[in-house]
Design a protein around this nucleic acid. Structure first.
Lengths: 236, 236
DNA sequence: GCGGAAACTTGATTCAGATCAACAAAACGG
DNA sequence: CCGTTTTGTTGATCTGAATCAAGTTTCCGC
C-alpha cells in the first residue's frame, strides 16, 4: 500500500467523464484535497455505517461492494474502472450502506466529500456529470438485482460467460479474469455450485479447463441464457 | 382514470422538497408541460424498455416497481408519497429498467423528461434537489436488496411488522395497509408462505386476526427481527 | 341474503441451492 | 523440489421456499 505522487495522475483523472467538462479552477480545488492510492487485493476500503468522508473512484482493478447483517455477508455489486462508488452517500452526507474491498490490485482515487459537495454547487457542468454518474450507479444496482431475482444461478453463469466472451474480443475461447471462488461470490452462489453449474452448461457447448473457457456454439448458449440489454448491457 | 384540473395542485407540488427551493420562473416552466392524474389500483403506468418521456411523482397512494424476464416477474421496490420514480432514466434519457403499476388508488404527477433536463441545467437549486432525490432512490434500492439477500422471509416479515407498527403510531395493535397477497409480493414471498410465516411469528408474540395485527411484546419481536437502520430506516 | 369469485389457509410434495465432508489439484514458500 | 496451504471438485444430505392441491373464509354484486 503505497502513497503515490499525485500530480502525475492529474491528466488521467481529468479525462474521466466526471471531470472532463468542469472548469479548471474547480478541478484544481478538487485535486488539492484528493489523493490516489494503490491497494493490494482484499483490502477493506470502507465499512458500512461509517460516515462518508471521501468519494472513491476506481481507476484500475475492481472493487467489491458488500453488506453484512446479523453475521451474514453478501456481495451487492462490483465497481469497475472508471467509476465512482458511494457517490450517493457522499451527496447526502449519509452513512455508507455498503462496505467495499478490493477484489484485485487496484488504484483508487479519494476526494473529500466536502469538496465534492462544494464544487457541485459551484460548477454546473460538474453537477451534470455527478448526476449522470449517480444515475448510472443506480441503474447498475437495479440491473444487478434483476439478474439476481429473475434468474437461476445457472442462467446467471451463462450470461456472465457471454459477457466475458464479448469483453475478451469475441473469441471462442477465453480465460476467466478471477479465481472461481470470487466469480461464485459475484454471481451469488457457492463455489461448489459454480463447479456444478459449469458442468451443467456442457450440453450448451461450454467446456472449461482450469480457468480457460471454450464456447462451442455461441447461438446455442444464447438460446439458453437469453441475454437482455435491460440486465446485461452496462451501457444502457 | 380522470384528468384533473392542474392549477389546483400547484401549491401541493410546490411544497415537495424537490420543487420548494427553485425559482418561480423555472417552476412554472416545469408545470406548463406537466399534469396530474388519478389512477385506480393495478394500472400499469410504465413498461420497462420504453423510453422515459415523463418523470413521475407519487403524490398519494403507492406504486409497485417491478421487472420481468423470460416470463418471470419480480417486484423490485415500492414508491411512496412523496417521491419520484424513474428519475434515473429521465436523467440519462435511457429506457426504463422497471415497469410500474399502482398498488392502490394513486395520484401521480407527470412532468416531461425534456423539461426536467432543461430546468436542471438552468436552476442550480433544482439540480441540487434532483441529485438529493436520486441519491435517496439509489439508497432505497440498496436497502431493499440488503433486506432481500441477507434476511429470510420470516425475518423480512418481522421487520415489516415493526415498521408498520411504528408508522401506525406505535400502538400494540394495528391494521395491515394492504391485502396479504400484496404484502407477500412486496416481501418477496408467496401468499402461502406469508400465511405460514405469520404463524411462525407467534412464539414472538405476534397474533393476527384478519388484517389486524397484535404485537404482545415489542422487545421480544425486536430480539428476533434485529432491525437495522442501514436497512430499515427510510430516512438515513 | 344468496351465489359466485376472490382471497386466504393448510397440508403434501418438489426443487434450487446451501451446507457438510472428503478428496484432488494447483499454487506457493522455503 | 517437497511439504503446506489454498482452491477446486464431487457426492451426500439438509433446508427454505415454491408449487400443487384441497379446503375455508371473506368479499361483493345482484
Amino acid at each position: 500500500m503505497r502513497l503515490d505522487l499525485f500530480e502525475a495522475d492529474y491528466p488521467d483523472i481529468r479525462e474521466l467523464h466526471l471531470f472532463s467538462e468542469m472548469a479548471d479552477a474547480q478541478f484544481m480545488k478538487l485535486m488539492r484535497g484528493a489523493y490516489v492510492q494503490n491497494f493490494p487485493p482484499r483490502i477493506e476500503l470502507i465499512t458500512e455505517g461509517d460516515s462518508s468522508d471521501f468519494l472513491h473512484i476506481v481507476l484500475s482493478g475492481s472493487v467489491d461492494l458488500f453488506s453484512t447483517w446479523n453475521g451474514r455477508e453478501t456481495s451487492m455489486s462490483t465497481a469497475w474502472p472508471v467509476s465512482t462508488f458511494i457517490l450517493a452517500a457522499t451527496i447526502r452526507d449519509a452513512p455508507y450502506l455498503m462496505s467495499a474491498r478490493t477484489l484485485e490490485k487496484s488504484r483508487i482515487a479519494l476526494i473529500p466529500s466536502r469538496d465534492v459537495r462544494a464544487v457541485f454547487d459551484a460548477d454546473q457542468r460538474f453537477a451534470r456529470a455527478i448526476v449522470s454518474d449517480l444515475a448510472q450507479c443506480y441503474r447498475s444496482v437495479v440491473k444487478a438485482q434483476k439478474n439476481l431475482k429473475l434468474r437461476s444461478s445457472l442462467e446467471r453463469l451463462a450470461n456472465y460467460l457471454l459477457q466475458q466472451q464479448k469483453q475478451s474480443g469475441s473469441a471462442k475461447g477465453f480465460d476467466l479474469r478471477f479465481e472461481k471462488r470470487r466469480i461464485a461470490s459475484m454471481l451469488g452462489m457457492t463455489p461448489e455450485n459454480l463447479s456444478r453449474a459449469f458442468k451443467a452448461l456442457r450440453p450448451y457447448g461450454v467446456s472449461i479447463d482450469g480457468s480457460h473457457v471454450r464456447i462451442a456454439d455461441l447461438e446455442d448458449l444464447k438460446r439458453f441464457a437469453k441475454p437482455d440489454p435491460l440486465i446485461d448491457d452496462s451501457a444502457t
